[in-house]
Write a protein that binds this DNA or RNA. Sequence first.
DNA 1: AGAAGATCGTTAGCTTGCTAATGAGACCGT
DNA 2: ACGGTCTCATTAGCAAGCTAACGATCTTCT
Lengths: 149, 149
Amino acid sequence: MDDFLTLLVRAHKLLQAASDEAMSRHGVRIGQNLILEALWETDGLTPGEVASRARLPITTPTIVNTATRMEAAGLLTRRRDPNDGRLVRLYLTDRARAARQPIKEARRRLEEHATATLTDEERDHLRTALTKILQQLGAGQADSGGEHG
Amino acid sequence: MDDFLTLLVRAHKLLQAASDEAMSRHGVRIGQNLILEALWETDGLTPGEVASRARLPITTPTIVNTATRMEAAGLLTRRRDPNDGRLVRLYLTDRARAARQPIKEARRRLEEHATATLTDEERDHLRTALTKILQQLGAGQADSGGEHG
DNA sequence: AGAAGATCGTTAGCTTGCTAATGAGACCGT
DNA sequence: ACGGTCTCATTAGCAAGCTAACGATCTTCT
């Protein structure tokens, strides 16, 4: 029996590969998903804003580099902020906006497929366990906002 | 509430970072762990053998590149196989062998720490769920060897 | 024996992530 | 107004992973 670390790394690897393949069919790579999600929500964010709003922690240089590839791929354009010359704002192209629903669907289906053999209870347990691990590792500053004690 | 994919990616990221930090204190980086584990077990494997024996799937080019870094770091030496000129055999240095127990310990402690707030039952559930996901995603060719039905 | 094919390690070139260093621009105090 | 500081994006350089292409060697078939 493998240790927990190994199981998690293997599951992660397979899921990332499957995600990348699924999104590639829509002209988007796995590393671009965080930026897309942030800009789908709020277009015209700066790299720093994308980094801080992203669903999971990512550094600004990574955003910048990925944005450059996305620009080359025709997924977004850069525009200097007229009011503050330091800022660069990222705007999605129509192509990137059109990919929104298909990609969300594809990811939803992937998640569904991956957990297809789990019971609802097992899915709950999995969520609970991962959440506890995240909290234990210091990622407690998450979305739930219930630290009252 | 985040989706399962996000939880898993976040947990993976934190655990990888923590692993890397822990192993760095012993002069080893996270990417070198698979090679070390294979060579601790059987010294003198070829890159291809390491790739196929590793605890999780990894390609030969990755082994080769990582081995180059490990050679530079004084963790292993390359030696041509005298019987087959195509093969290159990787041999650990004393330094790499000495790191075996400390690193195993460090990883065990990390896993223990990460799952410290889980009950035994929750740990079981987590294992079960991850294993099911791996099987569903086609990684069923694993170690347990119990596919009799 | 010699050509064709298979099997290796390696290299090239890419993506994704990181930290540290740079440089441009804004802001604040004097 | 101007010098220092702070705040941005970017660049540089690294690690770790991948696929595809390459070159050397071994095997096999005639």
